[in-house]
Amino acid sequence: MNKLRRIQWDALLMPMVGVVLSLLAWQLVSGRVVQKVQPDGTMEEVKSGLVQDLPGPIQTWEKTSKYIVEPFAKREELDQGILRFTWYSLVIVAKGYAIALLLGTPLGFLLGLSKNFSKMFDPIIQVLRPVSPLAWMPLGVVIFANSGRSANELAALFTIAVCAMWPTVLNTAVGVRAIPQDYLNIARVLKLSRTKTLFKIMIPATLPYMFTGYRLSLGIAWLVIVAVEMLTGRIGIGNFLWNEYNNGLYTSIVLCILTIGLVGFLLDRAMSLLERRFKSAI
């Protein structure tokens, strides 16, 4: 009992200590403005510190608190609460992610089921997989250039989907290949039809692998959003970050980075809870 309490306490305390230490380190390396007496007797403000233009934690809070305190406020198009920006980004990520899953899962099944299909397309997948979203984005813009008003959104969805689908494709393929022969023998002995074999045996047997793929894909989809918004100018957290950088408001960059990280972390947690549910169901 005592030990259990200590473990829970540790689980809470230790991360806190880590946060405090990180904040301290951040404060130490960040720049600050100090009053300096000039030789002619006047006072002047000069920057000092290891990284002079990096805002420290206190300064960041002072400058960005309005985005945090009213997270859903909409003052102007480019001046909105941080969670409102995040919401815009999440919506587009969700759409792109859905496309990635809808394309990636069947593709993974084909790769896992057919050796020939795998031989044909696996090399191409391996080549396309490491391509950065920054490289896909212009292609997306070109492909959907004639789509009128939605061209921008389609290009964004294309980039997210094409970057995020690979873990789903590959994990599904691995999962299909790993279906125990015993399970397939049951299908053979009972002479199950192809559809029945697929839905009663292959898909359930592959689910845990598929969900690992889905979780990794979601991480990538969220990772890509900043690049997509920077290039398309769609309103969202990535776009906000880029604008504030261009306006020299470096405190907002830090805020955006922390928000993006936190949201990514929460998404991953949610997915891994879902994943565990599916694994324990099996």
């Binding site: 049951i186 002995v189 002479k191």
Partner: peptide, 19 residues
């Protein structure tokens, strides 16, 4: 010729579908 449900097979490990 080939497998079929006219033969009931009991394997060494039960090979039940876990889901």
């Amino acid at each position: 010729t080939g497998p079929g449900p006219d033969r009931g097979v009991v394997f060494q490990s039960p090979t039940l579908l876990p889901w």
